[in-house]
């Protein structure tokens, strides 16, 4: 004899074991978003508003920043939080609009690949950077570089 379930009982949970990645993605978007508001507005103020604004940006300007541990940490956080935030947002759009299974897989694969490559590239650039590369003209380098 089969038993009819009581009405309004909870739906049976099937295959819901393990980490709920969608939930953590949802939390990540909000947590990283709050931090990014501070990091990006700080980045924009220092690079576009203060002093000569965009006109002041050149190799010497960036080298001066990346010689300072404060900006190394700032830029590393900016790179990882912003790129993963952006890629996860694009994943949402792909899931919303790419109805074709193959197209969706290609786009999601391209997103994952480009994100991984740019995270590795950007991190390597920040941590292998030499603000005073040998053989470069002194007038392009920051003022603290030793004069040959």
């Amino acid at each position: 004899m089969s038993v009819i379930e009581a009405p309004r009982s909870a739906a049976p949970r099937k295959g819901r074991r393990g980490i709920n990645w969608e939930k953590w993605g949802w939390i990540y978007m909000r947590a990283s978003g709050v931090v990014l508001v501070v990091l990006i507005f700080g980045h924009l103020f220092v690079n576009l508003v203060a002093g000569e604004g965009v006109n002041a940006i050149d190799f010497a300007f960036v080298a001066g920043k990346l010689a300072d541990p404060f900006w190394i940490v700032w830029d590393t956080l900016l790179l990882w939080l912003a790129l993963i935030h952006g890629a996860n947002g694009m994943r949402t759009l792909v899931n919303d609009y790419a109805n074709n299974r193959l197209v969706r897989r290609i786009l999601l694969g391209a997103l994952a690949a480009s994100t991984a490559i740019l995270l590795i590239l950007g991190t390597l650039v920040i941590y292998t950077f030499d603000p005073c590369p040998a053989g470069s003209p002194a007038d392009l380098l920051p003022s603290f570089c030793p004069v040959p």
Partner: peptide, 12 residues
């Protein structure tokens, strides 16, 4: 990210 990565190539 790509344009900033050029600091690792050369100042020029």
């Amino acid at each position: 990210i790509l344009d900033t990565a050029l600091v690792r190539v050369s100042p020029e």
